[in-house]
Amino acid sequence: MRILVIEDDARTANYLQRGLSEAGHVVDSAAEGRTGLEQALEGIYDVLIVDRLLPGLDGVALVRQARQAGLQTPILMLSALASTLQRVEGLEAGCDDYLGKPYAFVELLARLDALLRTRHQLPGPARILRVGELQLDCAARTVVRQGRTIALQHRESLILEKLMRHSNEVVSRSMLLESAWDYVFDPLDNVIDKHIHRLRKKLDAGFAYSLIQTVAGMGYRLLERQPHTAEP
C-alpha cells in the first residue's frame, strides 16, 4: 500500500518510513501539518499516519479539514496524548483509529492492515485480492493464476495490485508510477513499460493469452476474463 506519514519529529518519521518500507509499503512523509494536508488531498494514498502535535496545523485540525474536503482515506493518528477524552476527540474529528505512544511496531502494522481490510472488505490478514482467474496475496507478493503460483518482485506486486483494484479500467502510467514509487524517485521514461513486460512474462508463461492489455497512448488494462476470439 502507499502510505503518507505526517510527523514533525525527524527521528520518528525516519523510523516509521524505514519500518514501513521494509514491510513492503511505499512511504512518503511530510513534516508540517499544512504540507501534509496538501499531500493527503492529492488522493493517492491508501492510508495516512498522522501525529497529533504538528507545527502549522495540528493533527486533529488536519484530519477535520481533510474530512470536510471529502477525503475518505483511512487515517491512523499517533500521539502521546492518549487519554480517553483525547482519543475521543481524535476519532470525532474523523480518525479511523488512534494509537497511543509508545507503541509496538507490530501493532502499528496490524492496525494498518485492519484499516485496509475494512476499506476494501478483503478477507484475512494477508489481504487477498481476486479478479477473474488471478488471486494476489498482497503480503506474500505471490499471485496464483489457474492454480499456478507465481512469485513477484515488490514493485511488480504493487503494480499488479493497482491494476487488479481497477480491473477492466484503463490505468495510466502515472497512476502505476505513483502506486510503486515515492516522491523522491526520478523515473526513467520507460520504467513502467519494463516492469509491465516482466510482469506479463511471469503471468502469461504457459497461457494462450495475456491478461494485461496495452491501451495505446493511455496506459494498461487488466482483463477480468479471457478476451473473446472471433468465430471461425
Rank of each mutant, 00 (worst) to 15 (best):
D58H: 13
D58V: 03
D58A: 02
A61W: 02
L62F: 09
L62H: 06
V63C: 12
R67H: 08
Q68N: 09
L71F: 13
L71C: 06
S79N: 10
A80T: 06
A80Q: 06
A82Y: 05
S83K: 00
T84M: 15
L85A: 12
R87M: 08
R87G: 03
V88L: 15
V88N: 13
E89R: 14
L91M: 11
E92V: 10
C95A: 15
D97Y: 13
Y98D: 06
Y103P: 01
A104Q: 13
V106H: 15
V106G: 15
E107W: 09
L108Q: 07
L108N: 06
R111C: 07
R111T: 02
D113Q: 13
L115K: 04
R117S: 07
R119V: 10
L122Q: 08
P123F: 01
G124A: 04
P125Y: 05
A126E: 12
A139E: 13
A139K: 09
A139P: 10
R141W: 01
R141T: 01
T142H: 15
T142S: 15
T142N: 14
V143K: 09
Q146N: 15
G147I: 00
T149R: 13
T149C: 11
A151D: 05
H154D: 01
R155E: 00
R155Y: 04
E156R: 09
E156W: 06
E156Y: 13
S157R: 08
L160I: 09
E161V: 01
L163P: 14
L163K: 02
L163F: 03
M164G: 13
H166I: 00
E169H: 14
E169R: 15
